[in-house]
Design a protein around this nucleic acid. Structure first.
Lengths: 332, 332
DNA sequence: ATCTTAAATGAAAACGGTTACATGCTTTTT
DNA sequence: AAAAAGCATGTAACCGTTTTCATTTAAGAT
């Protein structure tokens, strides 16, 4: 592999001149510039970017911790990140962590070992352990989607409480009073916030909250199916089910159909996220649309600003949501 | 940030000893080893892996070009890659290329500029242009899933022709003779192979191939829906539809339902890939299961072997498939 | 006690760039 | 015409490791 010295020799100039020709062409005379460019072609020179990154101390890599790339919503977030990163001259190193904090910790180490400049975490968990904290204090991280809001790191999130309240209000406005909720993992702040929004709406409508209307889930199709089965066998069945994400809702709908319950005539089903499939299931799913790609773009932009020292205090960005009413919800 | 020299000073040894203690502990006496380890702790030393990579000339990064991470099948492939890479000490740099050859070329450049050791391409396209070819000849690449089989690069693929034949035979065995096919993009070799397998089965059953039974698609839900609408309006409607992936099949089923066609009583629908959603749609989808995670694992293993010079000729790995019969296909 | 051999350690070069500083040449100013 | 200023280029230090080679120290053999 030809290096900068080969080019210098071939062009009959010094390595400094070659470097300048490539980095700041205006600082070198047109005559030598041509000589150098010709030499670059002649020897087939490609700068070793590993050397550049090492020398400059900037890797222009960003680590992204994503619980699972197989989740359609995250896939959209990642797409947005990739776009923004490309525009800003950064590369994304994607880590499929499966929510495993050891794997997260492994990848987080890339920041403390100078393999990446910063990190984006899509889960409400701080992946840095004390051994990674450097002397200046915090490592550069942005927390998006599912966040720990302790003011230490910049945050990009949705007002999950307001969104859940909006969806519950929608169901109430259709006449539903027995509204079940299929939750995410209790450990997830998302679940807590959405539950709070659900309760807000009930309270506002003077409907007493019933603990028995809460069903466990973990954001997967299978969990939705399981909860759906349980619900169909219930004596006092709810007339509507609010699921914490679309996968769960689709799984639940499947269980209802197999129990000969018609959606929405017998039971209304609502989701959260608006993944692509939701418009193509039967019936099309009522859900909350999140600007997934925009989440990704914003997180990257924020992190790059942070790296460039453009932000002092950890900013907090709240993304807008939209209630998408389709055909899976109907009158009670 | 403490560097190796700080450790050496703190321990009262040379940098070489520190390096050896960390890389080949057996080559240094237990006494100094302890001294050095203590010093590492004391100064909070973390090796600068950028420097290591630069010095060693090995980045231990692998670039993966994926047409779209939002595709559930690819998401599974990527999960498999991530696992295998972690085991082998490599990191995956994921590039969401949207099938755009300029973006592919951009990321492919990471290999020729020493930012990554090798590349995995999931599309039938050679991302290297002549400017990237180095003097030794080919750049290290493995082609998986959708492949160009010209013998230049290692290949991991499915026998798409046999799989499509198996699915078509299944439909024929149910008594179907008018079998439509919703295709992928014509430019994709996948489409050509699957079409060939479809024709094989027809010929074997003495059914004349009808060009009019072929419908365009691009592997998306929307394309499946569009083709499904077209098919439902047909005068001489087929009794079965074979879709080139599950998204297409799910989209088509939705269109059939809206046209009041019952699946499978009025029309059978078959997919390809066995994504998670396929078991949770109504009716559950008959499809071809591909070992997606295994695809990823194999591609990574092959590439690492290639990098270590363990393979001479480009190997060709054919992964097994499985026909999954669910409820979306029935008697004609 | 002396010589040979092996093990442990240190000094310094190397990886491939960037860049501060020095040098030489040309042009402008007086 | 001499001095000052500006521009183009070269020299060499530097980034943080690894590694070769030389040197010192310890151990074993006679």
């Amino acid at each position: 592999m030809a290096n900068i010295r080969d080019v210098a020799d071939s062009a009959g100039v010094s390595v400094a001149t070659v470097s300048r020709t490539l980095q700041q062409p205006e600082r070198v005379s047109p005559k030598t510039r041509n000589k150098v460019m010709a030499a670059v072609q002649a020897v087939g020179y490609k700068p070793n970017l590993m050397a550049v990154k090492f020398r400059s101390g900037k890797t222009h890599n960003l680590v992204v911790l994503v619980p699972t790339v197989a989740n359609v919503f995250f896939a959209r977030v990642i797409s947005g990140m990739q776009e923004a990163a490309a525009e800003l001259g950064y590369s994304i190193l994607l880590a499929n962590t499966l929510g495993n904090s050891e794997i997260e910790s492994h990848y987080a180490k890339m920041v403390s070992t100078s393999q990446a400049d910063g990190l984006i975490q899509l889960r409400a968990f701080n992946p840095f352990d004390t051994s990674m904290i450097n002397d200046n204090g915090l490592l550069p991280m942005v927390n998006a989607c599912e966040v720990i809001d302790d003011g230490q790191y910049p945050v990009v999130s949705l007002d999950n409480r307001a969104a859940a309240k909006a969806m519950t209000e929608h169901l109430i406005s259709l006449g539903h009073t027995r509204i079940a909720m299929i939750k995410g993992p209790n450990s997830s702040p998302l679940t807590q916030e959405r539950l709070a929004g659900y309760k807000d709406a009930l309270e506002q409508a003077n409907i007493t909250f019933d603990e028995g209307m809460l069903f466990p889930g973990d954001f997967t199709l299978q969990a939705g199916y399981n909860a759906g089965e349980t619900i169909s066998r219930l004596q006092k069945r709810p007339s509507a089910v609010f699921c914490e994400n679309d996968e769960t809702a689709i799984g639940a709908m499947q269980a209802f159909k197999q129990a000969n319950l018609h959606v929405p005539n017998d039971i209304s089903v609502a989701g959260f996220d608006d993944i692509a499939f939701s418009a193509f299931v039967d019936p099309p799913l009522t859900t909350i649309a999140q600007p997934a790609e925009e989440f990704g773009r914003t997180a990257v932009t924020l992190l790059v600003d942070l790296l460039n020292g453009k932000v002092r205090k950890a900013p907090k960005v709240i993304m807008p949501f939209e209630l998408i009413v389709r055909e899976s919800t109907g009158k009670a």
